[in-house]
Each structure stands twice: as structure tokens, then as C-alpha cells.
Design a protein around this nucleic acid. Structure first.
Lengths: 215, 215
DNA sequence: CAATGTCAGTGATGCAGATCACACAAGTAA
DNA sequence: TTACTTGTGTGATCTGCATCACTGACATTG
């Protein structure tokens, strides 16, 4: 993690965060927020220094997973201009829930001090809308994850995952091992191998060592 | 569904909804809200007349399930003084998601016109807090449901379900058939029978025709 | 009472996916 | 070159749960 000197947060506000409308809110953010860069693989949640901030992702990609008993399962991705509602949530409510956020790519985020978030929420409508919108989105995401798990076979979920990932990254070459995929989907490596083989026969993907091409 | 004459909503506000603090908010609710009674088994969501209101449950119990391909799975229960956030959500966003809410007991709810909800949210902090709190709670609930599905075997989920239900109803006699339980947990009746038998051998429950006693 | 419907118990069998146990191939270090 | 590591392919077997096909127990109704 690094702190890029004195970023001009005002620039960020006008270029990326123009949904924060009130001039006074923008002033406050400019004064109190902080920009950080984190590297690919950086483990965001459960880090002491983050507990008291609410991040808004500016660039990059962050994945949020639920872990238990060695097994892990993907909940959703955070894209730029979205916030990690869970971190607010966990910070405030002292929840033990094993939810982890990891930077999938080198990422940049704006950190808002969480003690101000509550205040801004009541003072500025656009800020309040942002928080509520984030909750709505995440609620939907988790519902989707639940749905996939409850009603769809692993074959479907694997293909859906690959397509979603290709879409998110904007390219058809996905650099993941079968083990990685198994981890994301909460299943065994061998199973992933077998299913990918089947998908290759069906000409939906092309397999390579260390990466997969979506057709 | 019935409308109990002219309920004194002011009474309800002082007896049950005292977390709505602002006098002006209380006035507005008293003027614009409506009380309805629904019977056990009444199917709440996906009913035209409800789309434009946000319900707050006053008495009773409502269950929310997700359905797909004939199979259904319990998401969470709504207890008195909680709101069904999904109905707002679905109403506003025109979501096709198969989420259903059903009254588990005879219930009474306060209906708030949804076009005013957005307004009250920005004008009254206590109202805003209520909405946000509801989202947080539901987010947690769905995460729990996800977790159970992802990491716990059906045995565990069945027992957890029974205990939670006993707790919610405040009694150890649960009047459900094995089929009912199978539906809630998204599994087959036979499987439930077998597992209950096992639980009975372990002296965790006692089985009867049409009802189950939690020990 | 018999007739009928609802609820529960239980075996047989099937299938998705997990787990185990390897073999092998591609890259990397010595 | 050899040796070692990492990623992949594949059979054999095991487990949890679904599905099918019944049987019998209880409850209700005529």
C-alpha cells in the first residue's frame, strides 16, 4: 500500500465522483479523505488501519469472498466508483463474519473516515443516496450468489463465472489456474479440470497452461 | 386482507414505533400511513396493490423465500417492527427476482406510500436510519443464508432451522409436516424424515404426527 | 364400520461432486 | 543435462442427497 503524495482530490471529485453534488460535501471530502494505492493481491479487509475508513474504489478491481473451514466462496466484485459496504458494516457492528476483500488488480481507492460517514449521510442527500444505493447493489449481489449456489449446477456456475470474469476484465484471456477457479467456486481442482475439459469439447473455451481462453 | 376501521396510528407510533423521533415525521405518518391485517398464509409480495407501499410489520411473522424451478429456499423471517426491504427494492427497481413473502401468522402491518419514503428519508434522520438499518439487517440475513447453504450440511441446517423456529415462536412445539420442512430447506421430504429420525435417536427432538417437539 | 386422504418410515438405486492416488507435461533452477 | 516445482488429466472410490417405489399409521368423512 502506498500513499500518492498530495493527490488533488478535487480533480478526482470532478472527474469521477460527480454524483456527490453538494459543494459543501465536496469541500469536506477534499479536506478529510485520503487516496491510497494498493497492489494486486493486497488483502484489504481485517486490516486495523482500514477499520475506521470507508473506501470508495477509484481504479482497479476488488473481490469479496466468504471463508469458512478452509473453503472459500466468491460473493461479488467491487468495481470502480463502488464502495465496500461490508467494511463499513463490519467496522461499525464489530462483526466476526469471515468476509474478505482482496485487490484483484492494482487499485486506487478514496478513504473516507467512517466517523464522518454517518454525519455526511444525514447532511447531504447525494451522499446518503450513494450509501443506500451501495447497500441495494450489494444486497442484490449476495442474493445472486445465493441463487447460483441454491439452484444452479457447478457446470453452469463455472461457465457463468468465466464469462463474467472475461467481461469484467474486458478480455477473453483469463489467467487463472484450475486451483484458483476451484477456490473461487468452492470446489475441488479436479472437478474444475473435468468440467473445463467438457467445456472445451463443447468449444466454449480453449485451455492452456495457466490460462483459459473464452470463445 | 382487511382494513381495521380507523386505527389510531398515533397509538401505534407511541407504543411500537417510538424510534421514529421527529414530531413532524410522526404527524406525516399518522396522516398518510395505513394499517392492514393479513391472514396466515397470505401472499404479500407480487401483489399489485402492495407495490406502491412499504410495509412495516406490527404483529405477526412473515417469511421471505426465494423460488426457482419449483424449488424454494428460505431467505429470512421478518419480525415485528421490521420492514420488508425487498418489496421496496422490487417495487422501485422493477426486479424480476423470484422473491416471495408470505404471512406465517395472522399479521398486522403499517403501509407507507413508497413515493413518500424517499422524501422522509431525506427529511428525517430517524427514518433514514430505519431504512438503512433494515438494509444492514437483511444483508446480514442473506449472508447467513448463503453461508448455511455453502458451508453447512443439511443435518446442521435442519437442526438450526428447528431451533431458530422454536425460538421465533417462543415454544418448543413446531407444527409442520416433513414436507413443509423439506420445502423451506429446499430438500426432499424423505430426506427430512430420515434426518429427523436421526435427530430423534440423538434425543434432540421428539417426533409426532404433524408436529415436532424440540428438546 | 369402511373408504379415503394425509403423514411418516424405509429400502433400492442414481447422480453430482469430493477425495484419493497417481501419471505426465511444461517451466525453472542447479 | 538433470532435478525439482507447478499445473493438468484421469481413473477408482466414497458420500450426501434426490428420486422412485412402496408400506403402514393416523385422521376424517359418509
Amino acid at each position: 500500500m502506498s500513499r500518492p503524495g498530495l493527490m488533488d482530490i478535487k480533480d478526482i471529485l470532478s472527474l469521477q465522483l460527480n454524483f456527490f453534488k453538494e459543494p459543501k460535501l465536496r469541500d469536506e471530502i477534499a479536506k478529510k479523505a485520503q487516496v491510497v494505492d494498493v497492489e494486486h493481491g493486497y488483502h484489504i479487509l481485517n486490516e486495523g488501519r482500514y477499520v475506521k475508513t470507508v473506501p470508495i474504489l477509484l481504479n482497479g478491481l476488488v473481490k469479496v469472498v466468504r471463508k469458512e473451514a478452509g473453503k472459500e466462496l466468491l460473493l461479488y466484485y467491487i468495481y470502480p466508483l463502488e464502495s465496500c459496504i461490508v467494511s463499513i458494516h463490519c467496522g461499525i457492528n464489530q462483526i466476526k463474519s469471515r468476509v474478505e476483500a482482496t485487490a484483484e488488480e492494482d487499485s486506487r481507492a478514496l478513504l473516507l473516515p467512517s466517523h464522518l460517514v454517518g454525519e455526511w449521510r444525514t447532511k447531504y442527500q447525494s451522499f446518503n443516496d450513494f450509501i443506500l444505493g451501495t447497500y441495494q447493489k450489494r444486497f442484490d449481489d449476495v442474493l445472486d450468489a445465493f441463487n447460483a449456489l441454491a439452484f444452479h449446477s457447478l457446470d453452469d456456475r463455472l461457465l457463468a463465472y468465466l464469462k463474467a470474469k472475461a467481461n469484467a476484465l474486458g478480455k477473453s484471456k483469463i489467467e487463472m489456474t484450475h486451483q484458483d477457479l476451484g477456490d473461487e467456486l468452492g470446489t475441488a481442482r479436479e472437478t474444475v479440470s473435468r468440467m473445463l475439459k467438457k467445456l472445451e469439447v463443447e468449444e466454449k473455451v480453449k485451455l492452456h497452461r495457466g490460462w483459459i481462453e473464452i470463445l
